[in-house]
């Protein structure tokens, strides 16, 4: 499993959401796509899922160009609200399960219990935290080759974050899957990561192995990011 962006640019109007970005992601690893809001993280994930298309360059999964059909192999968690309000939790899961052949209903059931979601509840009546959990259930229940999470922790309290991180670690299949987490909350996920990619203003400004950073430079990912960020101009994290 290899996911790659080759010299990819994506423009919205005159502003470049991504500017000649090249990245490669391999199975068995957890990557952090780190950067402030609006840095191009979300666009990168959407490109890899085939929800958005590059203006320049190529996005490939296992050597083939990414299209809409790629979502067959890529599980994507949006930062948006992805569900239909009128659905119940169970209906939401049934719908996602019907669309993706790799959906594992038992895993979903287990995750529902672990994250304490009531399957009979309407999506409309769920709290923000519970919607976040439901999104996670639908994403992690898939045995997809790549799992892409866009701000999975936003709006969730620390207890929920912990349980989500644990579910992530528990259910990830390191022999076949790659996990990419896009977030601006670096501290929350630092200990999860194999590699960190720093992105700002649509450009990759650094990419490092997390443990090497500590071993060789005595830096945590957050410290490293702050150094880079000040070098490349402002940009709050």
């Amino acid at each position: 499993m290899v996911l790659e962006l080759k010299n990819v640019s994506k423009f919205y109007g005159k502003t470049a959401a991504l500017n000649k970005v090249s990245l490669t992601f391999e199975k068995g690893k957890i990557y952090g796509l780190l950067g402030p809001n609006g840095s191009g993280k979300s666009t990168s994930l959407k490109l890899m899922t085939g929800l958005v298309f590059p203006d320049e360059g190529a996005v490939k999964l296992n050597g083939t160009l990414v299209t809409r059909k790629t979502s067959e192999k890529v599980a994507y968690l949006t930062e948006l609200d992805m569900f239909y309000d009128v659905f119940t939790v169970q209906e939401t899961i049934d719908y996602v399960a019907s669309q993706f052949a790799d959906f594992n209903k038992e895993k979903a059931l287990q995750l529902l219990q672990e994250l304490k979601l009531d399957p009979t509840k309407k999506v409309r009546s769920l709290s923000k935290g519970n919607r976040g959990r439901l999104k996670l259930v639908t994403t992690l229940s898939r045995n997809a080759e790549a799992i892409l999470l866009d701000e999975p922790f936003s709006g969730l309290d620390p207890m929920v974050r912990d349980s989500i991180v644990q579910s992530l670690l528990k259910y990830l299949d390191f022999d076949h899957q790659v996990l990419i987490i896009a977030t601006h909350e670096i501290n929350e996920i630092e200990s999860l990561l194999d590699e960190a990619v720093a992105i700002q203003y649509g450009k990759v400004i650094g990419q490092e192995k997390v443990e090497s950073l500590r071993e060789e430079r005595g830096l945590s990912v957050l410290q490293w990011f702050k150094q880079l960020s000040s070098k490349y101009g402002e940009g709050e994290i």
Partner: peptide, 14 residues
């Protein structure tokens, strides 16, 4: 390894 990773909240490779 997996259990330990889950308990500590760190990457299994670590």
């Amino acid at each position: 390894v997996r259990e330990m990773a889950v308990n500590m909240g760190v990457n299994p490779n670590t």
